[in-house]
């Protein structure tokens, strides 16, 4: 059974605004580490916010541990721990006080709470500094404490939103090792990052997200194969209002794997851009769009190409 199930999920912040998450679908199996890989602004944090019940979805479905995020938010929250991108800690409280507070807010009490706190302090290497205010911690120590808070109560699903942003290599290594240890302990992890090598090192499966769309999904081998076999063609019409119809028409063509609209351009994933161009142009002509501007696009969002190659 999938611990997380997302179906055609859409999130739009304003009725007229763009889709921050645009119809993504995926499942995460129990015990799996699943990474959402994408550049800043791709929609990773928004997707996590909807799955964690912080934001309501505009449309589509999302389930955690079998609970609907719309109708059973408390059950969903009970099933997950979130490590946010920001350091969501109280700087004027000590490390110990932070852990106690967040543990109590998760419903932990008495001996269970104490055991959890001791364990997390030991895991983060913060036992010696537990009585110091968080304001006095280094960036790496704060990141580790932030992670420990998300793990309090050992929830079945842990969602980590870019936990290694702006930290030193030593702390980063520490966190990556810890995530791997979580998998060994049977936890399920949804990990977001814009570092390809992190996704590569940690993940059982990777979903590549850009402009709110899940543009690729699979294991690392599957993605490399996919990227290796595909090219991207980008077209811009002189009359922008027919772009949606053009997309529908192109999507229906044989050999077009995926078509999407991005910043006023139609982006098409095809086996060969050069071979496909005449067919696409004739389709444009049939819809009365003359001489559209065409250019080859990136195979993947720029940050990942060198690393994948």
């Amino acid at each position: 059974m999938a611990l997380v199930k997302v179906e055609d999920l859409v999130k739009r912040y304003t009725p007229e605004g763009p889709n921050a998450v645009d119809g993504i679908s995926f499942e995460i199996q129990k015990g799996e580490i699943f990474s959402l890989l994408g550049p800043n602004g791709a929609g990773k944090t928004t997707a996590i916010s909807v799955i964690s019940t912080l934001l309501p979805p505009t449309s589509g479905e999302a389930y955690v541990n079998g609970h609907d995020v719309r109708t059973e938010p408390m059950a969903v929250r009970q099933s997950l721990g979130v490590v946010p991108q920001d350091l969501a800690l109280y700087g004027n409280l000590t490390g110990l006080e932070n852990l106690r507070f967040w543990g109590e807010m998760r419903g932990l009490t008495g001996a269970t709470l104490k055991r959890e706190i001791d364990e997390k302090l030991e895991l983060t290497g913060l036992t010696e500094r537990a009585g110091d205010r968080v304001n006095t911690y280094s960036g790496g120590m704060k990141r580790r404490l932030n992670l420990a808070v998300g793990l309090l109560g050992n929830p079945p699903l842990v969602m980590l939103d870019e936990p290694t942003v702006a930290i030193d290599p030593q702390s980063r290594r520490y966190i990556l090792d810890w995530v791997k240890r979580m998998k060994d302990e049977g936890l399920t992890v949804l990990y977001t990052t814009h570092y390809m090598e992190e996704a590569q090192e940690l993940s059982d499966r990777i979903g590549i997200i850009d402009h709110g769309e899940l543009i690729a999904l699979g294991t690392l081998d599957e993605l490399i194969q996919l990227v290796g076999q595909q090219e991207t063609l980008m077209l811009q019409l002189w009359q922008g209002d027919g772009l949606a119809d053009f997309k529908e028409a192109v999507q229906a063509l044989e050999d077009v794997d995926q078509a999407s609209i991005r910043e006023g351009m139609l982006v098409i994933n095809v086996p060969s851009a050069e071979a496909m161009l005449p067919t696409v142009l004739s389709q444009a002509s049939a819809l009365d769009h003359r001489n559209p501007r065409a250019e080859p696009g990136d195979r993947l969002p720029a940050p990942y190409r060198p690393r994948l190659a």
Binding site: L54, R77, L80, V82, P84, A88, W102, M105, V149
Partner: peptide, 14 residues
């Protein structure tokens, strides 16, 4: 803005 309120809002509390 700092993220503690969103974190609180996804704890199992109304």
């Amino acid at each position: 803005e700092g993220g503690t309120l969103p974190r609180l809002l996804i704890t199992p509390n109304p």
